[in-house]
Design a protein around this nucleic acid. Structure first.
Lengths: 356, 356
DNA sequence: TTGTAAGCGTTATCAA
DNA sequence: TTGATAACGCTTACAA
């Protein structure tokens, strides 16, 4: 009878045969609180009792229910991480770094994929807020400032990573995108290019804006013109890099050097250049943001502006944990990107574009 | 006084100013249950009351506490996903696919990185079991069968992905690794190679074993010898691909064709080949598992065995949800990899290896 | 249509 | 050193 009841009970609920503290306590004729203490504060319970308990716990393969614990304690050991594309190696590195730091602290990481879609970001934020995560790290689309502010007011520590959301009380970890773009421009200028083009990202993202601004600034400092026809605004995805490149190549006088503001669009640009048999670097010098693995395997290898991706993720997670352990001041860290010169950028040679 | 008490209370607990059902109910002079119903079963509450409630809920930015809900309902809306390297594009694609399906079902995904480390996998499994996730998808290291069995007995639905764990009651989504390796071998054999080498993964992983077996089978069917010196067992990481390649190149008669069993080791192999100026495909034909993005950007582009990665992740997640909605039979899906012929594999040419 | 109350599995407070 | 008990925020019989 009893066993029948038990089975029915556990079939009604989702968790099937999960042992609980109460059951362990019953087996041992002890009180739940004693068993609980034996696990969380072993020194507060007599040696003999403790051993009996630990034995039973092991033999029943008991695992504490962190849901119940979280509810009782009023805190979770879960971090929320929102990125715009897990498959982009840039974010993959961040995910890995954050997960690493988090698990080192005994925290788990819930990864949400916003896909550059404000609607998906909204859902992700709601999800994380309902999960009552201990904190949120996110590369913002910039569209959900209102929700972020509300979450922040509710006490969720928030860390902006890679992009600024507009939150005033969030810690921030950024790469100096202007400096990176300047490095790229100056490198091309030093090589002697005077007709330079740029494919950047959406202007509502700090990354897209700053990388264009930096490029523009360097050019104007060198008194080199940047006509509108040589400026393309993509969406940081492969397709837009392809299309922008096609249009640039269609110009009556195409550029001799091209700066692409992230790795995805660079991949698109490459495809377009290959299709049209544009020789790199002879017909066009190419430089892009992000030192992805394949950059060095290309022929010629790709000159890039490298971002310290792991450091970005590590730092963001560390700032979050500092915040969780009481830091009050808002911290803003700006990391410096570096130029890695490879074969895809050389001085301009006045060679005609080969026919496709 | 009241406000002081409140502040003190919320400072003691971690969750700071999170509105609860009780508070909403109090503001409205309603019972919690009514408020709860207004949100989860709106039709069971009077139009007027419902509107009053929804207004207040919105103005207080109330978000249900999913911890409490999970505890009460005895189920979570969280999936656990264990992969051995988030940064490997193969797993990144799986993570993305799983997360996509999960969020479509209103589920969140906790991603754990096992790093090919059984110890880390153990921790991840314990974490997920304590979180009482609704189900677990994992590419097993093969070392934690005991824990997996225990979890399975406790009622956690488990899906094996990419590798088999040994669980008998887990759904499984695999790629036919033997067939893939056979495709690779047959391709090289058809090109006329007779001295073929292979770099495979750990033999305790089905992927490492099957890819070697398939290769071996194809060669023996063609009556081509595979001497031990031409077989290298790596660990699926870049470094081991590099080292194995270096050793292969050091042989008195090096192979004319090389099959590398995953993309990471292929990257390592490439580095070694470049360093030693071994011309591909003239001195060595190269083929690898995994059609990563950069494979087609190489010069020559890399011939690969492509795995249907998104499909792998999608299917795994779908099987899990089917299981959650009651399916009892164990399902095992085997997906077929495909050969993508590119420039890195050609008939052997008897050209000496250029000096480094 | 709404209210009452029990309970999910823990932990923490208080008493014994 | 241990036990009894009340929470944590929510859902859901059941009663009104």
């Amino acid at each position: 009878m009893v066993s029948l009841l038990t089975i029915d009970f556990y079939q009604r609920k989702g968790w099937k045969r999960l042992v609980t503290l109460v059951e362990i306590a019953k087996k041992l004729n002890l009180n739940v609180s004693t068993v609980s203490r034996a696990l969380s504060r072993p020194d507060m319970v007599a040696e003999a009792t403790r051993e009996r308990i630990l034995e039973t716990v092991a033999s029943y393969e008991y695992r504490p229910n962190s849901i119940a614990r979280s509810l009782r304690k009023g805190k979770t050991c879960t971090l929320g991480l929102i990125v715009s594309d897990i498959q982009n190696p840039f974010y993959a590195a961040i995910v890995k770094a954050v997960e690493g730091i988090a698990s080192g602290h005994g925290y788990s990481t819930v990864v949400c994929n916003a896909d550059e879609n404000p609607q998906k970001e909204t859902e992700a934020l709601h999800l994380l807020s309902e999960m009552k995560v201990a904190g949120i790290i996110h590369g913002s689309t910039g569209a959900n400032l209102h929700i972020l502010q509300s979450l922040s007011r509710q006490g969720f520590p928030i860390v902006d990573i890679d992009r600024v959301s507009g939150l005033t009380d969030a810690d921030t970890v950024l790469v100096d995108n202007q400096a990176g773009a300047r490095l790229a421009a100056e490198h091309l200028l030093e090589l002697g290019h005077t007709r330079l083009a740029v494919i950047t990202g959406p202007q509502h993202l700090t990354t897209g804006r700053d990388r264009l601004d930096g490029f523009r600034l360097a050019l104007s400092a060198a008194k080199i013109a940047l006509p509108d026809a040589l400026v393309h605004i993509g969406d940081f995805r492969e397709g837009s890099g392809y299309e922008a490149t096609v249009r640039l190549l269609g110009l009556s006088s195409p550029p001799t050097a091209l700066f692409v503001a992230n790795n995805e669009m660079a991949a698109g640009a490459l495809t377009a250049l290959r299709e049209r048999s544009v020789l790199i670097p002879d017909a066009l010098s190419l430089i892009s943001f992000d030192d992805v693995r394949w950059a060095k395997y290309l022929e010629p290898a790709l000159t890039v502006i490298a971002q310290p991706t792991e450091q970005l993720g590590t730092l963001a997670a560390e700032l979050l944990f500092e915040r969780l352990s009481g830091r009050k001041e808002v911290v803003r860290r700006v990391l410096q990107p570096t130029l890695i010169t490879r074969g895809s950028s050389t001085p301009p040679r006045e060679i005609a574009v080969a026919d496709a």
